[in-house]
Simulated scan of single mutants.
Amino acid sequence: MKKSIILIPILSLITVALLFKTYYITKEIIEVRFSSIDNGIEYQVYYSSGNEDFNEKNSVKLQSQKSNELTEKTILIESAKKIDNLRFDIGSNPSEFKIKNLMFIGNKTIAPTFEDFNNKKNDQISNLTNSNGIINFKTIGNDPFFVFNNIDLKEKEVTGFKFEIFIMLIISTLIFYTIFYKILK
């Protein structure tokens, strides 16, 4: 009986610790947000750390709907490692595009300017112009993209520590083991 009384708080603390570890996950999340006018194409954002090459495994796709007016789109990237570089792919066929308010959002927000688009590495992009904050361009191949290197958004946690949830975990664990103890008794 005395062992059970000692065992319940120990099991409770172990359970709380495991639940807390599960709850307090740190992953980098970057939100890529923009508005565009397009023909219902597939956007794909690749991400990498340091000097890593871009690859399909580290990418997220978004299929858009055809739109004749600026429509906001969001792509969420979740990674267990820090993200340093983004490659923003725009469709797979030659077309005309308008993009406004492209933002990479982590703990801080980076909003590339027209000069950033114009100076960044890009491929199969032509006629890049800026009209009242809207980036206009044509894609001329089947794999057009912009690359943004050395972005510094820092880690953004999927979830963070919240004292209320921690207290609820402790209380619910104690209730569970108290009921468990009474059943065994």
Rank of each mutant, 00 (worst) to 15 (best):
T15Y: 02
T15F: 03
V16F: 04
V16P: 00
L18I: 13
K21E: 12
K21G: 09
Y23M: 14
Y24C: 00
E28W: 07
I30F: 04
R33M: 06
S35P: 00
S36V: 03
N39M: 06
I41L: 09
E42R: 13
Q44W: 03
Q44T: 11
Y46S: 06
S49Q: 14
G50F: 05
G50C: 06
D53V: 14
K57I: 11
K57R: 08
V60T: 11
K61G: 03
K61M: 11
L62S: 04
S64Q: 03
K66R: 10
S67T: 15
S67E: 12
N68G: 04
E69T: 15
I75A: 01
E78M: 11
A80R: 09
I83G: 01
D84M: 05
N85Q: 04
N85T: 05
L86I: 10
R87C: 10
R87G: 07
D89M: 09
D89L: 09
I90Q: 08
I90S: 05
S92T: 15
S92W: 06
E96I: 09
F97V: 00
K98V: 05
K98P: 00
I99S: 06
N101F: 06
M103A: 15
F104W: 00
I105W: 00
G106F: 02
N107D: 14
T109Q: 03
T109K: 02
T109M: 02
I110S: 12
I110T: 04
P112Q: 06
T113L: 04
T113M: 02
F114M: 00
N118H: 04
K120G: 11
Q124S: 14
I125K: 12
S126T: 15
S126Y: 07
N127D: 14
N127G: 08
T129F: 07
G133S: 04
I135N: 05
K138L: 10
N142R: 13
F145G: 04
F145S: 09
N149W: 01
